[in-house]
Amino acid sequence: MLEARSAQAQSPAAVRSRIIELTVNGERHEILVKPRNTIVEVLREKIGLMGTKHGCEQGACGVCTVLLDGRAVLGCLTLAVECDGKSVRTVEGLAQGGQLSPIQQAFLDQGAVQCGYCTAGMLMSATALLERNPKPSIAEIKKALEGNICRCTGYNAIVAAIQQASGQGVEPVMR
């Protein structure tokens, strides 16, 4: 904790911005970022993709989950400078050609969306899970979603949606 007492932050002018190359949902971007910018800030404020949300900013709630080179990571704890040359998938990249992805459709079918604030993160965690494990058990689904907090649904509908999307005999309830 020595640095907390002795070191003062440098003045903003002294810190160099950098150009990073980022592929977001298949589209290549070159963006000027400061080291302190996180990937969520860049997605929302520089690229204009508002699907990924800011939440606790402490890595505790999971609403900012994005897929970085296929791995589910917390956007609020990932510095944009560290993503140079990497590929990011956000919730906007799930639907293809106006068609919702199976997991998005299942969330609608199961009523797994209420206020919707956690949904983008839930969908990305669920996508990462299904890409790794196409037929997860209920225990595996719960383990994979442990980092995503939802204060509305009580989670059962979300677990059912992932079972539906993975073709495990759960029927839609919202049609």
Binding site: E3, A4, A7, Q8, Q58, L77, L79, E82
Partner: peptide, 27 residues
Amino acid sequence: GEGARAMGGGTDLLPKMRIAITRPTAI
């Protein structure tokens, strides 16, 4: 120098920087 910190995943360091417990000059 002493204001610099190494960062692997950042899951411990960045939350501390958010609440300004740690203020590194360089990462």
